[in-house]
């Protein structure tokens, strides 16, 4: 099978380092993965091409990169599924993290965020002599998260990290959830209050915008965004309602539950807190721009026509 692998290259050793695209026309097996193609290039065509790879079986997490614009593992992506009509596969380094050389990116930021969530079990009660007794379901649920191989695909495609490098990001938050959801972590009831408090701070769980890119990118089905949403639920359950994010969620629910639609004027006010004068003043420029561009929400918030149905739904949900 003939294929052209178009690789985004960068050589910091060059006299004037710059990004360049290079095309490698090669012939590969029908079953070959994108990684097989890259290895063939490296071994037989161009030894200067650098990439990380090791296990070839989607477990070491080395070969995450962007293939046709989306992050994934090269070893888990079939070449034949990735070619366009001209037989071309476009390969770039992972995003968000700076490129070191060719397809190799600098993971420092990634690991720093992992370390920030104190990624080790912290039981607050004495260990039992034998193993902890835990349900198989709870362990299977956690294994769905510990299946994360730290490949960085989710971080590469995270739309928040792209603009805000302070965000903990999908991998670190999923890692954190792996502890908050562990019955062995935290107090005797398995509640990890300290963790949840820290994760509720700015740049933490409430900064995810739910774009779903991490869920799409994850090659191991970890679904980081779903774990972040679960973290939020845990935080509110143990009473951490006094954060912008939690208030935002509550104001959102209250508004929709009451009128059937979002009251976009009240939402930001309730999210930051009505007494939070500096934050409220901070909204003025945005409000002014909205006003001058004719995009200010209606000052009088009206109910939707069929508001009773929505209220009934909410009552039903609240009672369940």
């Amino acid at each position: 099978m003939d294929v052209t692998v178009k690789v985004k290259r960068y050589d910091p050793d060059a006299a004037r380092p710059q990004v360049e695209w290079q095309e490698y026309p090669i012939s590969i097996d029908e079953n070959a993965t994108v990684l097989d193609a890259l290895i063939m290039i490296r071994e037989e065509v161009d030894g200067t091409l650098s990439l990380r790879c090791s296990c070839r079986s989607a477990i070491c997490g080395s070969c995450a990169m962007r293939i046709n614009g989306h992050a994934g593992l090269a070893c888990k992506t079939k070449a034949s599924d990735s070619m366009d009509a001209n037989g071309t596969i476009v390969v770039e380094p992972a995003g968000v993290m700076p490129t070191v050389k060719d397809l190799v990116v600098n993971f420092d930021l990634f690991w720093k965020k992992i370390e920030e969530v104190e990624p080790y079990l912290k039981p607050e009660v004495p260990e039992p002599e034998a193993e902890y007794i835990a349900s198989n379901e709870s362990m299977l649920h956690l294994s769905g998260v510990t299946a994360c191989i730290m490949c960085g695909a989710c971080v590469s495609d995270c739309t928040v990290l792209e603009v805000d490098p302070t965000f903990l990001g999908p991998a670190a938050l999923a890692k954190a959830y792996r502890f908050t959801a562990d019955p062995r972590d935290g107090d005797a009831n398995g509640v990890s209050r300290d963790r949840l408090a820290k994760l509720g701070m700015p740049s933490g769980m409430w900064d995810c915008t739910r774009c779903n890119e991490c869920v799409q990118a994850c090659p191991k089905g970890v679904a980081p965004m779903d774990r972040i949403m679960a973290l939020r639920e845990q935080a509110m359950e143990v009473g951490f309602g006094n954060t912008n994010g939690a208030r935002h969620a509550e104001a959102f629910t209250e508004s929709v539950g009451h009128s059937g639609r979002l009251d976009e004027l009240r939402l930001p006010v309730q999210s930051v807190g009505i007494t939070n004068i500096p934050a409220l003043l901070g909204f003025m420029p945005v409000g002014w721009r909205a006003l001058t561009h004719g995009k200010l929400p209606p000052l009088v918030h009206k109910n939707v026509e069929d508001v009773d149905t929505i209220r009934r739904l909410f009552r039903k949900l609240n009672n369940s």
Partner: peptide
């Protein structure tokens, strides 16, 4: 093995919640 479990490995369990 027990050390690894205490460190946090999510071993599959049996019906009683012990290591399977």
């Amino acid at each position: 093995l027990i050390d690894m479990e205490h460190m946090g490995v999510t071993f599959n369990r049996d019906e009683e919640g012990k290591l399977g």
